[in-house]
């Protein structure tokens, strides 16, 4: 059974690559308006978890529900066709570590591409919304520029606006600031904080402890493919339940 308020319900996801068990029996729910930060050492399976949610990676076991709809398996109980999967994926926004903007399209076209081509929404309406989103991330003046002319921080803000243009039910962030020069991290986190304040439903894989501490509604701490601990940031950062979490926080606090 799925929780009524749950936007995203992940139940018992496992994934292995060859001999390596990347995810073991991961379960959690994300309710509307939550900002869940997924923390954990490198190689703990955080990115793979995100990629399993929208089936960029196919999980070996477990179920994922988006607003009550099963992802990846259709009503007949068989694996969805690419076309069926595509329809579900339009409801999940994704922000990539290396931005992954489409290089042949301008900033505005990047925002409009999927809403117009995939969701088949009217171009004029999408354009208006896209311009509003660019204003929101502070890039109105870059609408007609190609991504190659932007700084990393600007690219990632476009990446976020592009995901928002789909009007998704949930936003997934895969280490959105890890590829940025340190002085550009702030402008991206600022946009993400604003989204958290607005009550967007988000799952964010990050190494930004300060951001997780004051923007997250809940922390999901992973280690070696398992969820080791979950709880509100006040408790997680001050008095974690597990020794592994304590060590992790100490290592990061030490810099």
């Amino acid at each position: 059974m799925t929780n009524d308020m749950a936007v995203l319900d992940v139940a018992g996801i496992s994934k292995r690559f060859g001999d390596l068990q990347v995810l073991s029996d991961i379960s959690f729910t994300v309710t509307r308006g939550e900002t869940v930060c997924v923390l954990g050492p490198s190689g703990s399976g955080k990115s793979t978890l995100l990629r399993c949610i929208n089936w960029l990676e196919r999980p070996d076991a477990g179920q994922i529900y988006l607003n009550g709809d099963r992802i990846g398996i259709n009503n007949g109980g068989v694996v969805m066709s690419d076309r069926e999967l595509s329809r579900v994926r339009t409801r999940i926004g994704m922000v990539f570590q290396h931005f992954a903007l489409w290089p042949h399209l301008t900033v505005l076209q990047n925002l409009m591409e999927a809403p117009v081509q995939v969701q088949r929404r009217p171009a004029a309406e999408v354009r208006e919304e896209a311009m509003a989103l660019l204003a929101k991330v502070g890039l109105s003046d870059k609408a007609d520029v190609f991504p190659a002319r932007l700084s990393g921080g600007q690219k990632q803000r476009v990446g976020i606006a592009r995901a928002l243009a789909m009007k998704p039910d949930v936003l997934l962030f895969d280490e959105p600031t890890s590829a940025l020069d340190p002085e550009l991290v702030g402008e991206v986190l600022l946009v993400m904080r604003e989204l958290a304040r607005e009550g967007r439903t988000m799952v964010i894989v990050t190494h930004e402890m300060g951001f997780a501490r004051d923007a997250a509604t809940r922390i999901l701490f992973m280690d070696r493919g398992r969820v080791v601990e979950t709880g509100p940031p006040e408790r997680f950062f001050v008095s974690p339940d597990t020794e592994r979490a304590r060590q992790f926080i100490q290592r990061y606090a030490a810099g």
Partner: peptide, 14 residues
Amino acid sequence: PREPIEAGVAFGFS
């Protein structure tokens, strides 16, 4: 690069 194509898939292109 693999990522922009993957982004296309994630945004519902197939």
